[in-house]
């Protein structure tokens, strides 16, 4: 099987040559197999978001190449890469258009990767499909399809964003701490939804989290980043039997220093 995602030795330095220069990624190399669900952990500023954003094309990388499903996307702009990707962000405000209503937001997502012409923006048939999909979220959103998304709670917005990201099956789903801004109960619900959707559609996914327990419990592979590199990569059997203590040990070996569990990885 060919890898869904190939990140080949990428590097990224922000503001090079200035006093704010920051090496965010030094040499990141990662291949994902179809169906891989990778959880990503690491301390603040380790480069987790930068890695995901590099894949999404938010900025160009300095070195290396990125290919998705066999297509070299290294030089594609963000909006073109979107055809392959589903994304959910940390801030619930980022993933949806607040001044547009629920069904309009979904119609925008439904056309990801397609040409947008002068056909009407949403059809009656689509509307029915959206209603059905919203009802599966179990949040009652199917009865509020013409409400502005700005009126929804953070959790509702994240659930909607998740649905929008996966409605058209993406080659790769990128979740960047997408439950970090939610209260614990809502966060658990959105995580559960994410796991369900990923399993059902057999998605290849990367999920950044600061919660070590979630990182261990979810997915079939776990990577840990430190100072712009991937320092731990466990999968399969090994991942399934992983404990918090194992993880700390692995980190210490890789990074060559002691891991401060509470500071670096809030669990």
């Amino acid at each position: 099987m060919t890898a869904v995602l190939k990140i080949n030795h990428i590097a990224k330095t922000f503001n090079p040559g200035t006093i704010t220069e920051k090496k965010a990624l030094t040499d990141v190399h990662l291949h994902l197999e179809p169906g891989d669900f990778v959880t990503v952990i690491g301390g603040n500023g380790a480069g987790k978001s930068t890695m995901l954003n590099a894949v999404a094309g938010v900025f160009p990388v300095d070195h290396g190449t990125i290919s998705i499903d066999g297509v070299d996307v290294t030089h594609l702009p963000e909006h073109k890469r979107a055809a392959y990707l589903g994304r959910v962000f940390q801030d619930p405000m980022t993933g949806t258009a607040a001044t547009m209503n629920i069904e309009e937001n979904m119609a925008l997502a439904m056309r990801r990767g397609e040409k947008r012409g002068l056909r009407w923006g949403i059809s009656a048939m689509e509307r029915e499909m959206y209603r059905e999909q919203l009802s599966k979220l179990g949040l009652g959103l199917e009865n509020r399809m013409s409400s502005k998304v700005g009126l929804l709670s953070g959790g509702q917005r994240q659930a909607l964003t998740l649905l929008m990201a996966t409605m058209r099956t993406p080659k790769l789903l990128l979740l960047d701490e997408h439950t970090a801004a939610l209260d614990p109960k809502t966060a658990a619900k959105v995580l559960e939804l994410s796991e369900m959707i990923i399993a059902k559609q057999k998605l290849t996914a990367m999920m950044i989290t600061h919660n070590m327990r979630d990182a261990i419990a979810m997915g079939n592979r776990l990577i840990m980043m430190h100072e712009g590199r991937i320092v731990v990569d466990v999968r399969g059997e090994h991942k399934a039997s992983l404990t918090r203590e194992d993880l700390m040990g692995l980190f210490e070996k890789a990074a060559g220093k002691e891991l401060d569990g509470d500071k670096l990885l809030l669990s």
């Binding site: 963000e78 990707l85 993933g95 258009a97 607040a98 925008l108 056309r111 990767g113 397609e114």
Partner: peptide, 10 residues
Amino acid sequence: ANRNMSRAQG
């Protein structure tokens, strides 16, 4: 309404 969201939706 939202430039980031728009780009993420292609």
